[in-house]
Nucleic acid binder design. Structure first.
Lengths: 199, 199
DNA sequence: ACCTGGTAAGTAACCGGTTATTGACAAACA
DNA sequence: TGTTTGTCAATAACCGGTTACTTACCAGGT
C-alpha cells in the first residue's frame, strides 16, 4: 500500500462530489463515499471533520471550478450565457450542487459578492445605474444566468412537449442558439429612449 | 375529540408540504409531519401508504395549485412571467417543491406534457415552427420560465452584490419590472427578417 | 329512548435496520 | 522513536414502518 494523504484527500473529495451531487446533503451516505473513494470512513473525519464539512468542501471545489472555467465576461453576456450552458451540460454536478446548496445550506460554500459587485459596477459604468440595455446590471446578470440554466432545470414534461428528445445533440444545439439570442436581446440597447425603468 | 378523516388527511398533507418543502424527501421526518399535523404517525401510512406516497401527494397538490393559479397565457408571456414571479414570491413552497422534485424524484408528480404541447402548437400557429419572435415556441416557454424564477433561485451573494436588500418590496418590484421587460424583448418580433434561426 | 355490536379513527409503544461519529490500535514513514 | 496514515469494530442515536390496542360513532333491533 502506498501512503499519500493528499491523494486520499482528493479521492474522498471526488467521491463526495459524486455522492452529494446525486443525493444531496441529507440523502448522501458516508459509507458510500468511503467505498467509492476506496478510503476508510475514519479518514473522512480526519480530513474533513464532519459530513457538513465535507459538503462545504465539495461545494467550494465544484463552484470554484465553475467560476474559473466560465469567466464572467460582463461585456459579452450572450457569450457568457452560451459558455455557461456548455459547461453545465458537461458538468451536471455543478448545477446540482448549486441547487442542493440553495435548498439545504444556502449560507455555505464560496461567497463571490465582491467579484459580482465589481462586475456590476463595470457594467453600470456611467450609465446612471443602468446598462446600455436600460436594465439594472444586477438584474441583467441574474436574468442571463436564468436563461443559461433554464433548460437544465425545467421539468421533463415541459422539455418533451414539442416531441423532440430534449437531450439530443441537435436539440441542445438549437436551444443553445435560442438562449444566446435571448441574452443578446436582453443586452441590446433599449429602443424607446428612457427605457423600461424611467427615472 | 372530533373524528373527521377528510380533515385529518388535509392536515397531514399541509404539514407534509411544509416539511418536504423545507427539508426535501430525504431530509423530511415523518415524526415531525405527524406532530405538525396533530395527527398520529400511523394515520399517515393509512392515508398515504409511505413517505414517498406522501411526497408524491404533496407534489401534486403544490404544483396543481400553481398551474391553476397562474394560467399559461401563451399570447401574453410577459404577463405570465410577472404573475408567475408574484405567485412564487407568495408561495415559496411551490418553487422549492419543484426543485426537490427535480433533484430527488424527477419522475414523480403531475405530468402536463399534453397541456404544454397544446400551448406550443398554439404559439407556433402557422409560423413554420417559430413564433413571431423568431424563437421556437418550446424554447421561448422554457426561457420565460427561467426569467420568472431566476431571482428566486440565485445565490445570496449575487443578489446582494448591488448593495440592496434583495427581498425588500422595492427591490422585488424593480426586479419584477426588469423581468417582465426582459420577457417582452424575447417575445418581440425579430428585427432581422429570417430571425436568429434561419431555415 | 336504550342497548349493542360492528366499524372507522386514533394512539402509544415498539422493532429492526441504518447512520454518523469515535476510540483503540496497527502499520508505515522520518 | 515519534508522528502520520490507515483499519476495525463499537456506540449511541435515529427513523421509517408496524403491532396491538383503545376510543368514538352509528345503524338497527327491542
Amino acid at each position: 500500500m502506498v501512503r499519500d494523504s493528499a491523494a486520499t484527500r482528493n479521492r474522498i473529495l471526488d467521491a463526495a462530489i459524486g455522492e452529494f451531487s446525486a443525493y444531496g446533503l441529507a440523502g448522501a451516505r458516508i459509507d458510500r463515499i468511503a467505498e467509492a473513494a476506496e478510503a476508510n470512513k475514519r479518514s473522512i473525519y480526519v480530513y474533513y471533520e464532519s459530513k457538513e464539512g465535507l459538503f462545504t468542501a465539495a461545494l467550494h471545489r465544484v463552484i470554484g471550478d465553475l467560476v474559473e472555467a466560465v469567466p464572467l465576461t460582463e461585456d459579452d453576456l450572450p457569450g457568457y450565457a452560451g459558455r455557461m450552458f456548455d459547461y453545465l451540460l458537461v458538468h451536471p454536478e455543478a448545477l446540482r450542487m448549486s441547487m442542493w446548496r440553495h435548498l439545504e445550506r444556502p449560507a455555505k460554500g464560496p461567497d463571490a459578492a465582491e467579484v459580482y459587485a465589481h462586475k456590476i459596477e463595470a457594467m453600470a459604468g456611467g450609465g446612471g445605474g443602468l446598462t446600455a440595455s436600460g436594465l439594472p446590471p444586477a438584474d441583467l446578470l441574474v436574468l442571463v444566468q436564468g436563461l443559461a440554466s433554464s433548460w437544465l432545470i425545467s421539468p421533463e414534461d415541459l422539455l418533451c412537449a414539442d416531441g423532440s428528445d430534449p437531450y439530443s445533440p441537435e436539440r441542445l444545439a438549437a436551444h443553445r442558439a435560442s438562449l444566446v439570442e435571448a441574452a443578446r436581446r436582453l443586452c441590446a440597447p433599449a429602443q424607446t429612449p428612457g427605457g423600461p425603468n424611467p427615472p
